[in-house]
Lab assay of single mutants.
Amino acid sequence: HNLTITQGKLFFHYNPKLCLSEIHKMEEVSGTKGRQERNDIALKTNGDQASCENELLKFSYIRTSFDKILLRWEPYWPPDFRDLLGFMLFYKEAPYQNVTEFDGQDACGSNSWTVVDIDPPLRSNDPKSQNHPGWLMRGLKPWTQYAIFVKTLVTFSDERRTYGAKSDIIYVQTDATNPSVPLDPISVSNSSSQIILKWKPPSDPNGNITHYLVFWERQAEDSELFELDYCLKGLKLPSRTWSPPFESEDSQKHNQSEYEDSAGECCSCPKTDSQILKELEESSFRKTFEDYLHNVVFVPRKTSSGTGAEDPRPSRKRRSLGDVGNVTVAVPTVAAFPNTSSTSVPTSPEEHRPFEKVVNKESLVISGLRHFTGYRIELQACNQDTPEERCSVAAYVSARTMPEAKADDIVGPVTHEIFENNVVHLMWQEPKEPNGLIVLYEVSYRRYGDEELHLCVSRKHFALERGCRLRGLSPGNYSVRIRATSLAGNGSWTEPTYFYVTDYLDVPSNIA
Rank of each mutant, 00 (worst) to 15 (best):
V501H: 04
L213F: 06
Q275W: 10
F499H: 01
S392Y: 03
A220S: 12
I366W: 01
I418R: 05
L426R: 01
A336T: 09
S251G: 05
S239V: 04
T340C: 07
G412F: 07
P245A: 07
G306L: 08
G467D: 01
S284Y: 02
F246L: 09
R376H: 13
S509L: 12
V327M: 05
V501A: 03
P270W: 08
R390T: 04
R481K: 13
E281R: 10
T328Y: 12
P508R: 15
I438S: 03
Y445F: 06
Q256A: 15
G325M: 14
S315C: 09
T401H: 00
A399P: 07
Y498H: 12
V457Q: 05
P238Y: 09
D323G: 15
P244E: 10
E417F: 08
T303W: 07
K302M: 12
V424N: 00
V424L: 11
K357Q: 05
V457S: 02
C391Y: 14
C266F: 07
F499M: 14
Q380S: 05
V439F: 09
V324A: 12
E249H: 06
P332V: 07
E221G: 15
L505A: 10
F246W: 11
E442G: 09
S251D: 12
S398E: 04
I410T: 03
F499Q: 00
G322D: 09
F298V: 05
L455D: 01
R318W: 15
A263S: 11
E224I: 03
Y396G: 11
V296F: 05
R483K: 13
R353N: 13
P238R: 06
H416Y: 14
Y292P: 06
S474W: 08
N295G: 10
V365S: 10
R469F: 15
V345F: 07
V334S: 11
V439R: 06
Y478Q: 02
K253P: 07
V501D: 02
Y212S: 03
D273K: 09
P338E: 08
D229P: 10
E227I: 12
T401I: 03
E356D: 06
N208F: 06
C266W: 11
F246T: 12
V296K: 15
S474F: 11
F226I: 06
G472F: 09
D311N: 14
V443R: 01
K317V: 13
Y441H: 02
L321G: 06
E389G: 06
R301I: 14
E362R: 12
F462S: 04
F246K: 10
V331S: 14
D503H: 04
S367P: 13
R218W: 10
L364V: 12
G467P: 01
L505T: 12
E356G: 14
E378M: 06
E351L: 14
N383L: 09
A336F: 09
V329R: 09
R446H: 14
A335I: 14
N421Y: 08
A394S: 08
D323V: 06
I410R: 02
R316I: 13
L225H: 04
L232T: 12
Y498M: 11
S305H: 04
T210R: 06
I366N: 00
V297K: 13
N422K: 12
Y478K: 01
W242P: 07
E247L: 11
Q256R: 06
A399M: 13
V423T: 14
G322R: 05
Y504K: 13
L440C: 14
Q219P: 04
S474K: 08
K317Q: 11
V397I: 01
S268A: 15
D273R: 13
K236Q: 14
T485A: 15
H371D: 00
L213Q: 13
D229K: 06
S315H: 11
K278G: 06
E290N: 07
T485C: 15
P300K: 11
H461S: 11
T210P: 04
Q384H: 08
N421F: 04
N255K: 08
M402Q: 15
W216T: 08
L280A: 15
C231M: 02
K460W: 15
N383G: 02
E350G: 13
N383F: 06
A381F: 02
E442A: 05
R301Q: 13
P245M: 05
P244T: 07
V214Q: 00
Y504T: 15
T373Q: 15
R313P: 15
Q384K: 03
E227P: 12
E265Q: 12
S398G: 02
L453V: 07
E290V: 04
G264I: 10
A336P: 11
T272L: 10
S243P: 12
T502R: 09
E249P: 04
I438N: 03
A309K: 11
